[in-house]
């Protein structure tokens, strides 16, 4: 997995709540057996609208997406974070996320940041007020701040997830350190409840 440490990037405001994974990547773009190349399908239907935020030149090259609550609801398709990454995003900031999307993101070095609703509001205002508005997302410090450092917002993250992201660790490798424990659990379960095997 790619590491995530500090990200300094332009913020794209996507002022919608409940953005579902069918919008992030419509099903007609799922027909691949690879993990790459999904950027083309990112918000494909919405991008047909010339006014859609990703089509506005001022946000070209942005790496941070800003959205409203319950981002990533619906289908479990990991193609959603893959598409965001492939398009160039490394981070999405929202007041809340759907559980499966949230989990999938961490597996790909893609950081979902939860901020309070009023903080997200403030970032939306900053985006509207300042063309090319950038923030620095610092995972180690757990902060989001504008590049001029005029304010900083703190976010929470599970220590284990943070550790994996900062170091770009392979989770399977980490789990397999507990292989003996898994085997022992399995042996006991098989003896106690053989019908599950």
């Amino acid at each position: 997995m790619v590491k995530f440490t500090v990200l300094n990037g332009v913020v794209v405001p996507l002022d919608r709540a409940n953005v579902d994974t069918d919008q992030i990547i419509p099903k007609q773009y799922l027909a691949s057996i690879k993990r790459t190349g999904f950027g083309e399908g990112l918000f494909a239907e919405w991008r047909k609208d010339r006014e859609f935020v990703l089509n506005q030149p001022r946000f070209k090259g942005a790496t941070i997406l800003l959205a409203r609550k319950n981002f990533g609801c619906g289908s479990s398709r990991e193609h959603a974070p893959w598409a965001l990454m492939d398009y160039g995003f490394r981070c999405v900031i929202a007041p809340s996320f759907a559980d499966i999307f949230f989990t999938n993101s961490f597996k790909n070095g893609f950081l979902p940041v939860v901020l309070r609703e009023d903080e997200v509001d403030r970032l939306f205002h900053e985006c509207a007020a300042f063309p090319g508005f950038r923030v620095v997302v610092d995972l180690d410090k757990q902060t989001v701040a504008p590049t001029d450092g005029s304010f900083a917002m703190r976010f929470e993250i599970d220590p284990f997830r943070k550790y994996c992201l900062l170091n770009g660790l392979d989770e399977i490798g980490l789990t397999l350190r507990h292989a003996d424990k898994i085997r022992a659990f399995e042996t006991q379960r098989k003896a106690q409840h053989p019908w599950y095997f």
Binding site: E78, T103, E171, H178
Partner: peptide, 16 residues
């Protein structure tokens, strides 16, 4: 679960 978790469960029989 997502596809990375599918791979994780295949490889370890566990979910993180």
């Amino acid at each position: 679960i997502g596809t990375s978790e599918v791979e994780h469960v295949l490889a370890t029989q566990c979910l993180v």
